[in-house]
Amino acid sequence: MHAQMKHGNGIIFTSFVIAFALTMLPLPEWAEVGRPEWITLVIIYWCLALPERIGVGVAWTAGLMLDVIHGSILGQYALTLALIAYFTLHFYQRIRIYRIWQQALVVLMLVLSEQLMIIWIKGVIDQAPESRLYWLPSLTTALLWPWTYHILRDLRRKFRVH
């Protein structure tokens, strides 16, 4: 049982590593503004799948790393991702029985609220971006939800992570 637990951790860790790598991967200028919030996707998935193992703490840690990666003010992503994880954990039983496109809508709402919080924080320190393209990632993230969901679910079943 213990070994299995460890094994599962490996899969979860790898999924986070890949999400971080995708966050940093250089994209052409036009695609950069629409880069999906990979970390948010992965956190939402694991909070839905394993609510008793992945929660606010993991999200906060991942957020802190994301802050360093983005060079943003420390705590910005930590706070928002922790809140996202909290909301997901609060509603996970309801979200689980939704159909996939309904789940994508929920993801859209969650990422929109994340971006809203971030733009508030940035507004306070006078670094808010003026472009409306700022909101594009919430759309791309929601569109990627079905694929992420299926890939991660298949992986989870294959490696029997419970």
């Binding site: 991967l25 250089p26 994209l27 950069e32």
Partner: peptide, 11 residues
């Protein structure tokens, strides 16, 4: 290093 940051900053 070829890594990307926030697209609205220049880092």
């Amino acid at each position: 290093m070829a890594v990307d940051f926030d697209p609205f900053k220049r880092l």
